[in-house]
Nucleic acid binder design. Structure first.
Lengths: 251, 251
DNA sequence: CAACTGCGTTTCACTATTTGAAACGTGGCG
DNA sequence: CGCCACGTTTCAAATAGTGAAACGCAGTTG
């Protein structure tokens, strides 16, 4: 194993354990390493902004970089944990499968799934990707991304079925509708016979971080039933957002 | 500089950037490193629990360890930022200096300070340490530590002045009183002529993470004025706790 | 006020460590 | 069944890490 990396990692752990800035010499004593070695390692960590030297004391401390790099992991874990019971409840109530998805590059990454208990089921596995532009789970996310991101995603629009919405203007209008109603729908656009309704999930800061989707065969997503399914997706997403600390502010 | 460590750091950043687990080969391509090198580095990170291999896909992803190591930095920054205006306001209202302290090893670490505008001032600098057992800022923290920690701290009790409380039973009783009233006081115990009152600051989870202290010359901390100063420390600590997300639950 | 101490930092010859092409076993796919 | 790409292992060659010693500096001490 990379001995130098091991030393660098223990160094980071030592810096994390002490809350106050610490000097090279003391660090070397604690870790039983040579002073030069510690200096070189700390210097490397400094150059990469993992560590900062206090200009007054000359001592070193961690920056927020570790946290920045690690916070995503925790958020995703928390999201899955928090969303799981809601996915199950919505699947139970609706009789359809439910999905949890996040934006990943220019796709939707399926983070979690609860199958329906009905005989006719729709594919899709955890860890797979689906398109942003022609799925309900994707549009519920895409509608709340930055203009730049949407523009980039638009370049990737591909026709999947005869019913896929491929016009940019039409898609833009549809995204506006999603923002207005907080809900997205897609029928036969991703794959013929597959339909879904989805709603955005927001975190403490109000940012859309995921979306919850109710999906099943198009034959069951008929006009009479759609409003009910839409309400279920919305209510599920609202519950997850609430548990993530989101507090809607009037409007 | 430690080239190997640099590679390990970029590897961590690459793992953090992608939200889904990623394979050795792809990682090697992205970083333009040899597959063996990436494998050895990732293996090292795995052995130290910074990274975990998804047993199904064989791909690798960050664990929460980075976050755990970095979260303290952010919390301390946030604490200082949040506490600063309160320290200033309390200093203004009381006419005395205010301090913000946290537990560090078996001492109090002074994280921030606002001086009084009165001529007669008391020493103490940011970054220095004071004792847990014979200062108000220390007792406000010590009173809410674990039994084990308090037992360890008790072994470090030292007489600083003729008025220092050195009896274990007396100190234990005093800590109980601090827990009851949520406020600590110390007069002439740390240094003759120095007095202070302090109150604990709690975070979102209700844990005591810091304490706020109003300190000045004993000559100004007379019986007639003490209740008012105590109320100011309590109110200041309450405000900081509130801004950290603490919500007191009845009792 | 000079000697001392301990700090962060730099140097450099030595050597232990990292490197990368190649190959292995495996699992998925057409 | 053959193919491809994956994670993993190997090993000689080469590079990168090591640590004792010394530097300049600041603060402390007799």
């Amino acid at each position: 194993m990379s001995a130098t990396v091991v030393k660098a990692l223990s160094l980071i752990e030592a810096l994390s354990a002490g809350t106050a800035p610490i000097g090279i010499s003391q660090l070397a004593r604690e870790l039983r390493l040579n002073k030069s070695t510690v200096y070189r390692l700390v210097d490397t960590l400094c150059r990469h902004r993992f560590v900062r030297q206090d200009p007054q004391s000359g001592r070193y401390a961690l920056t927020t970089k570790l946290w920045e790099l690690g916070v995503g992991v925790v958020q995703r874990l928390e999201l899955r944990e928090v969303a799981r019971p809601v996915l199950e409840a919505v699947a139970q109530d609706s009789g359809e499968a439910t999905l949890l998805g996040i934006v990943q590059d220019l796709d939707v990454l399926i983070l979690d799934k609860v199958d329906s208990n009905q005989p006719l089921q729709i594919f899709s596995r955890v860890g797979t990707r689906v398109a942003l532009h022609c799925t309900s789970i994707g549009r519920a996310l895409l509608a709340f991304q930055s203009e730049d991101y949407v523009a980039q995603a638009m370049t990737k629009i591909a026709r999947r079925t005869e019913r896929t919405l491929v016009g940019r203007a039409e898609l833009a209008a549809e995204l506006a509708r999603v923002r207005r109603t907080d809900a997205a729908e897609c029928i036969d656009e991703w794959s013929l016979g597959v339909a879904g309704v989805a709603a955005p999930i927001r975190d403490l800061s109000g940012k859309v971080v995921a979306s919850l989707c109710v999906t099943g065969p198009s034959s069951r997503f008929v006009a009479r039933r759609l409003p009910k399914l839409r309400r279920m997706a919305l209510e599920g997403a609202r519950q997850v957002s609430d548990r993530l600390g989101y507090r809607p502010s009037g409007g």
